[in-house]
Design a protein around this nucleic acid. Structure first.
Length: 416
RNA sequence: GGAGAGUUGGCAGAGUGGUCGAAUGCGGUGGUCUUGAAAACCAUUGAGGCUUCACGGUUUCCAGAGGUUCGAAUCCUCUACUCUCCGCCA
């Protein structure tokens, strides 16, 4: 949620900033007007309440006093009802306004204007035609996309045998690295979450169409463990000295992928369900910028350890997600597509999510304000699986696993 | 799934429809004392909103949402959660 104080003090600057993110000018003006109306009605309500409170005598009121109080009470209630309507309208509106980008984010309208920050590792030169991950995996018997369709329909994976093991091992490798080297606490959370949690991180109310919902229940399949992890502290006041708090979770992620018909239909790049290792941090506001760079480094460390070539891209204003103020995507090289594809997204949300989820912190016994939240994939496991296959394939259709996985796969399995 | 009990400030725990934002204890903060610390003693200590340059003013909040009443932490209804017992179960 946008800081309402900031909205009032810097209305025009905020508007300009949000316009670069694609917010409609009329919608914004509407929001500002609603905020003004709400403040006015709040004032009116308080005046009436004050009048009523001042008229309440000590002890039991006399009949005349009761009559007077009844009148006052009636007018207060009428005003309160009016206020409630306005407040709900405002709340609805406020929940639909996205976060403003940080000033240093490049302005642009869509992903074509994203900025490549650096490329790490060199895409391998093949002396044969590299196969796509889905072809490799089907040939090796590691993936069975056809039978997956029988069970669950399109866009679902079925990992088999050594493929299933590799998927599991990748997850474990990532978790181990983040917990032992990067200082994250491992969390295993439920995949089903309530709407309040999704509102906290920003998936709701606007993006309900992308989510699976349990019939007749206020339970949804979480699209990312960012939801579970960030809402760990929903409604809490954290101790300043305990910050930053870092959590990592491995969780299945569920997305309808509405509107992506025909995109990435082969393989496991874009499935309705996929596993992801997610990093979330709660930090003091002054630490969030540096924190994002560190978190990005933690995600990069996985790619480096797996010897995968990748690049870091900073999203332009128009491509930023709803809640994010700044985002770096990590894109890994896919030889079969001759392209870099997103494998991680690391964002700074400032106090946007904390404000929605009511996550504050205190310093020396006093509430200091909202924390800043950061998150990033570290990494999407399915895409890592696919990238690993494509980049490590041999001309005989086998896979050379990176050295980092030897302790997990065993020496004899390291080179297949 | 059935039966019962509960949910109050950071924690524990009072609270009979008006004098309750709420006793008391612990904890926190500041101070006195002390070479220093502990102990003891004194003071202070919930959160949000609106308003104000500021001091301050004001309002709301006793799980959540409704209701009764001139007036609700206290009465009623629903929901969520916790605990105990029974049943079922990986």
């Amino acid at each position: 949620m946008i800081n309402p104080q900031h909205l009032r003090d810097n209305t025009e600057a905020l508007k300009q900033s949000l316009l670069t993110k694609g917010v409609d000018a009329g919608e914004f003006d509407n929001y500002v007007a609603l905020d003004q109306k709400w403040r006015a009605v709040t004032q009116e309500t308080e005046v009436l309440q004050q009048e009523r409170n001042a008229s309440i005598p000590k002890g039991k009121p006399s009949p005349e006093e009761q009559t007077k109080l009844a009148e006052l009470s009636k007018s207060v209630k009428a005003k309160q009802a009016e206020l409630q309507v306005v407040a709900e309208e405002l709340k609805t509106k406020a929940m639909e306004i996205p976060n403003a980008p940080l000033p240093d984010v490049p302005v642009g309208k869509d992903e074509s204007e994203n900025k490549v920050i650096r490329e790490v590792g060199t895409p391998r030169k093949f002396d044969f035609e590299p196969k796509s991950h889905e072809v490799l995996a089907e040939e090796l018997g590691w993936l069975d996309m056809e039978r997956a369709t029988k069970i669950s329909g399109s866009r679902f994976a079925l990992f088999m045998g050594a493929g299933a093991k590799l998927e599991r091992v990748l997850t474990q490798f990532m978790l181990d690295k983040h917990t032992t080297e990067h200082g994250y606490t491992e969390v295993q959370a439920a995949a089903l979450v309530q709407s309040s949690a999704l509102e906290g991180t920003g998936q709701l109310p606007k993006f309900a169409d992308d989510l699976y919902r349990m019939e007749g229940l206020d339970l949804w399949l979480s699209p990312t463990a960012e939801v579970q992890l960030t809402n760990l502290y929903q409604g809490e006041i954290l101790e300043g000295p305990s910050l930053p708090l870092r959590y990592v979770a491995h969780a299945p992620c569920f997305r309808k992928e509405a509107g992506s018909y025909g995109k990435d239909m082969k393989g496991i790049i874009r499935n309705h369900q996929f596993d992801k290792v997610e990093l979330v941090q709660f930090v003091r506001p002054e630490d969030s910028s540096a924190g994002l760079e560190k978190l990005l480094g933690h995600a990069e460390a996985i790619l480096q350890a797996l010897e995968l070539p990748y690049r870091v891209v900073e999203l332009c204003t128009g491509d930023l997600g709803f809640s994010a103020a700044k985002t770096y995507d990590l894109e890994v090289w896919f030889p079969s597509q001759n392209a870099y594809r997103e494998i991680s997204s690391c964002s700074n949300f400032l106090d946007f999510q904390a404000r929605r989820a009511m996550i504050r912190y205190k310093e020396e016994g006093k509430v200091s304000g909202y924390v800043h939240t950061l998150n990033g994939s570290g990494l999407a496991v399915g895409r890592t699986f696919a990238a690993l296959l494509e980049n490590s394939q041999t001309d005989t259709g086998n896979i050379n696993h990176p050295r980092a996985l030897v302790p997990y796969l065993g020496q004899e399995n390291a080179i297949v």
